[in-house]
């Protein structure tokens, strides 16, 4: 287990490195620079700023200087938010993003699995067909379409929930962002767990359990649920990535001061280090969460535990 973990962590280094290189090149390929949109500066000052931030060096030198910092855990200063480091900005914005992302994942799992089980047990009934049609809708319609529709209906027309973010305490401001973020995941997980449970329920060991006189509830609880959840668990890795990227859109729509909003602003402002820092942070986060998912997989499936 420890060796496997170490091997996976070492194997992730090239992935993260590739992400850094690609992000660096793409950010620099975009026209403009971090200090362009302010009022015109004299060439001397511009040169001074460039020198201060080492932007006058050749790109490869800048890249390795930056990489050297990243390896030591230093994501550099933000070019836009004066006196702030990228690490500091991420640390400030992270709790809100984590809260929303975590709540969305939790909601997606609980609701998705629940709906999936109910649909599987009533396979091909009107309920099953209806739920699955809705799930298809949830998967196909993008977040940036239904989130504004929610706002329009529930906030503007019915006035049940706040339309945007405020610093006042209370849970109501979370409802729309979390539900919007979770909805496609609920739909996908519901379809996945339905198909998986139907598959498990037709396996030989479930037939054995029926022959042993176990009730449907016992069969689900003691025999079918665990194996049926394995595909859902494998999906957690990609799901986390989708929720993270989805949060960028959601935070922008609802005006939530999370990491995603910093990311969008950073990209607009050509805040090179901020964009790069968030990309690297997300890449590492996704790699780690995928590793955790795979380790959990080993815990659930005894056949691969000792591999």
């Amino acid at each position: 287990m420890l060796r496997y973990t170490l091997r996976r962590l070492l194997g992730a280094i090239p992935t993260v490195l590739l992400v850094i290189v690609l992000a660096f090149v793409l950010v620099r390929a975009a026209p403009g620079g971090p200090f362009d949109d302010e009022r015109a500066l004299s060439p001397e000052i511009e040169a001074n700023i460039a020198r201060y931030y080492n932007l006058d060096e050749p790109l490869p030198v800048q890249f390795f200087r930056y990489l050297g910092g990243v390896v030591q855990g230093d994501l550099g200063p933000s070019y836009r938010y004066r006196d702030s480091t990228v690490s500091g900005l991420i640390a400030d914005a992270l709790p809100i993003s984590l809260r929303i992302g975590g709540m969305a994942m939790l909601l997606a799992i609980v609701a998705g699995v629940g709906i999936g089980i109910v649909a599987a047990l009533r396979q091909n009934s009107a309920l099953d067909r209806g739920v699955m049609a809705f799930a298809m809708l949830g998967i196909s319609v993008p977040v940036f379409v239904f989130a504004p529709v929610f706002v329009l209906l529930l906030s503007v027309k019915l006035q049940w929930l706040p339309a945007g973010w405020s610093s006042t305490p209370g849970l109501s401001k979370y409802v729309l962002p979390v539900v919007s973020l979770a909805l496609p995941q609920i739909a996908y997980i519901a379809r996945l767990s339905r198909a998986s449970l139907i598959d498990v329920l037709s396996s030989d060991f479930v037939r054995t359990a029926r022959a042993q006189g176990l009730s449907q509830a016992s069969i689900i609880r003691y025999h079918a649920l665990k194996p049926a959840m394995l595909p859902v668990l494998s999906y957690m890795g990609p799901a986390i990535a989708v929720v993270l990227t989805g949060s960028v859109v959601i935070e922008e729509i609802f005006g939530i001061p999370g990491v995603g909003q910093f990311f969008v602003r950073g990209a607009m402002n050509r805040d090179y280090t901020l964009v790069l820092g968030i990309v690297i942070f997300y890449a590492v986060l996704i790699v780690l969460l995928n590793l955790i998912v795979d380790l959990l997989y080993g815990l659930i499936d005894p056949r691969i535990r000792n591999r």
Partner: peptide, 21 residues
């Protein structure tokens, strides 16, 4: 009835036992 009066042994014990339990 299935458990207390009639029980059954199947052909392939690998498939008939739950690999997760």
């Amino acid at each position: 009835v299935r458990a207390l009066e009639i029980s059954m042994v199947f052909q392939d014990p690998m498939q008939a036992l739950n690999p997760f339990v």
